[in-house]
Structures are given as structure tokens and as C-alpha cells.
Simulated assay, not measured.
Amino acid sequence: MWEQLREELDFKGPDQTVRSYISKRKKEQLDEATQATLLLESNWLGTSGLWGSPIQN
């Protein structure tokens, strides 16, 4: 990816800059996916098992 940035966009920074950014973004995306999963699980637990169908007492 660093080579592509250099060739296509004339990127002047070191490869470690790109590696660090990619590592950071991967962690952020994993955290976002985990949060979305937890939200979906908590929504599902509050229903009768069918999305959007609350348990009736």
C-alpha cells in the first residue's frame, strides 16, 4: 500500500507512517464492529426472537 501511495499520489512519508495508520484503523474498525454486534445482541435479547417484536406480557 505504501508503494501505491508513493507511485500514485507522490506520498513522501515513511512506510512506518502507513503501517501505523493501518494498524490504528484496523483496531478502530474492530471496536466499531464489536459495538455493533453488542447492540444487535442486546436488541435481540429484548424481543421474542423476531426483530422488532417485543415480548408481550
Rank of each mutant, 00 (worst) to 15 (best):
K27F: 08
L9E: 11
E3R: 12
A36D: 01
L5K: 00
A33Q: 06
E41Q: 06
S23Q: 05
L50I: 15
E3C: 08
K26F: 04
M1Q: 09
E8P: 02
K24M: 07
K27A: 13
Q4D: 13
E41P: 00
Y21I: 10
K12D: 11
E8G: 04
T47F: 02
E28C: 08
Q29W: 12
D10G: 05
S53N: 08
V18R: 03
Q16S: 15
K27L: 12
L40R: 15
E28Y: 07
L40E: 15
A36K: 02
S42Y: 04
E3F: 09
T47Y: 02
T17Y: 14
D15T: 08
K27I: 09
L9Q: 13
P14A: 08
N43S: 10
Q16P: 01
L39M: 10
S42Q: 12
D10Q: 11
L40Q: 13
L45P: 00
D15M: 11
G13V: 01
L5F: 01
K24S: 11
L30Q: 14
R25T: 07
K27E: 13
D15S: 14
N57C: 05
T47Q: 01
Q35A: 11
L5S: 02
L50F: 10
R25Q: 08
T37S: 11
D15L: 10
F11S: 01
L40I: 06
D31P: 00
W2C: 03
K12S: 09
G46S: 04
L5M: 02
W44D: 10
P54F: 01
W51E: 11
K12L: 09
I22Y: 03
N57M: 06
T34I: 05
D31Q: 12
Y21G: 04
L30G: 02
D10Y: 06
G13E: 04
G46Q: 05
S20D: 09
L50D: 08
G52R: 03
